[in-house]
Structure formats: C-alpha cells, structure tokens
C-alpha cells in the first residue's frame, strides 16, 4: 500500500506545485484533441447528415464504412499518417511529422467516423414525416437538412462527446506521429506511459486523475445539456 500512498502524495504535490510540467501536458492534450474534434465535426456532421437522411445502396456502403471506422485501431491510423508525413512519404515535404498538426490529423481521422456514425444514427431517427411536414410548409432541401440537424441536436452533442472521448484517451497514434517530445508534443496519455516506464508513478497517477476527471466532466456536461433540452424532446 505504501507504493500507492507515496504515489498519491507525490501526485498531489506535482499538481499543486506545478513543479512538473503536468498542466502544460494537460493543455497540449486539450488543444490537440479539441482541434481534432473540431476538424472531425466539420467533416463528420455533414457526412452523418447525408448518411442519416438518404436511402439507397451507396448510403448503406458508406454507413458500413463509418460504423467499421468507429473501431479503427489508433495504431493503424498512426502508422498510415506517420508514413504519409514521413520524409520519404507523399506529404513529407510539409515537414509535419512529430508536430502538433500531425497529431491533430491523426486524431481527426480517428474521430471522424465516430462523429459521422453517431450523427447518422441520430439523424436517421428523425421521422421522415417530419421532413415532409417541413417541405409542405415551404422548406427547401437545405432548410430540411437544417431542421433535421436541429431535431437531432442531442445526437450531435453525443457525437462530439464520443469523438472527444475516443481521442483524448488515445495513445497509439499520438505517440507515433507526435513522438512524445517534451514541451511540444507530449500529451497526457504519452506522458503517463513515459512516467510509468520511468517508475515515476506520482506524476503518472496525477495525469491519470486529470484524464479521468476530464472524461467525467465531458459526460457531465453532456448529461446537463440533455437534461435541459428534455423539456423540448419527443417522448
């Protein structure tokens, strides 16, 4: 038990004093994963909207791909992005490997199918009659899509949370394309791996606590949004 007690003590001290670069690592994590989710949203929500609203063979194929993409192993994404960005790779001239933008790209690739698939499910649950009703009041295709997105907004919030959850706790891809460079590409998960290897359980435990707290906080916000919106939900 002494091991745990000592580690917790060290961890609390690390968080309180700021002596170790704990908060900097947390900030990097939030920046990288936040940017990745933003990119995933921009691409994934329209894709999900298309998949949820359309009927047909092409849509079914894309839906299978999006669902399969939810289980995309981060290390595979990391490998492919690393190869693309490597000096000999097709995008090597950009010099992005082992930078934050590379991490954002990899995490966006991981989050995109999650955002698209969750959005598609929410959008598909909006009754087609509701769209017909909107059209009968003069809605164009564009108005119809906006309405459907509004109706499915809880699903979009869930998509954001799911996407963020998938990337903030992901370690394989960021390690491979970011390189865990101290002060620039070190994020919570890679730092935890690093400290653990070094036997410095205190800072590792402190970062783990922050990571857990973040995941809980994201879900708490989600629950709050859902509760406050329930008044206007279909039963």
């Amino acid at each position: 038990m002494n091991l745990f007690l000592d580690a917790i003590g060290e961890g609390v001290q690390a968080l309180a004093s700021g002596g170790v670069d704990v908060w900097e690592v947390v900030a990097t994590s939030l920046r990288v994963s936040g940017a990745a989710v933003a990119v995933a949203l921009v691409l994934g929500v329209p894709a999900g909207l298309y998949l949820g609203m359309r009927r047909g063979a092409a849509r079914n194929v894309f839906l299978v791909l999006a669902n399969a993409g939810m289980g995309l192993p981060p290390v595979v994404v990391g490998l492919v992005v690393a190869m693309l960005l490597s000096r000999r790779g097709p995008l090597g001239s950009l010099g992005l490997l082992y930078t934050r933008p590379a991490m954002v790209i990899a995490q966006a690739v991981i989050a995109m199918p999650v955002v698209a698939a969750v959005t598609a499910t929410a959008v598909a649950s909006v009754p087609v009659e509701l769209r017909l009703q909107a059209r009968s009041l003069g809605a164009s295709r564009w108005h119809e899509a906006v309405l459907v997105l509004k109706e499915a907004r809880m699903g979009v919030v869930a998509a954001v949370a799911a996407g963020f959850g998938a990337v903030i706790s992901e370690v394989g891809a960021v390690m491979m394309v970011g390189g865990n460079l101290e002060g620039s590409t070190r994020v919570m998960t890679t730092a935890i791996v690093q400290y653990t290897r070094m036997g410095r359980y205190g800072p590792a435990l402190a970062l783990s606590a922050v990571l857990l707290a973040l995941v809980v906080a994201v879900n708490a916000v989600l629950a709050r949004v859902q509760r406050s919106a329930e008044r206007f939900e279909r039963s």
Binding site: E129, Q133, S136, G138, A139, K150, E151, F232
Partner: peptide, 30 residues
Amino acid sequence: ARLQIAAAFQRPWLFKGTVGENVGYGLALR
C-alpha cells in the same frame, strides 16, 4: 408554387422547440 400551399397531417409533427417557433416556421422560411 409550393410556398402557396400548406399542409397538416394526421399526427401533428411538431418540431422541437416552442409553440411559437412551430407556428412561425413557415413564416421564417418566407
């Protein structure tokens, strides 16, 4: 032509939001 025709169905199919937003939906589109 569509903007001059309106419909209501067996189920009311109200949109999420307030009564006012629903009644104003067609007006907002216009």
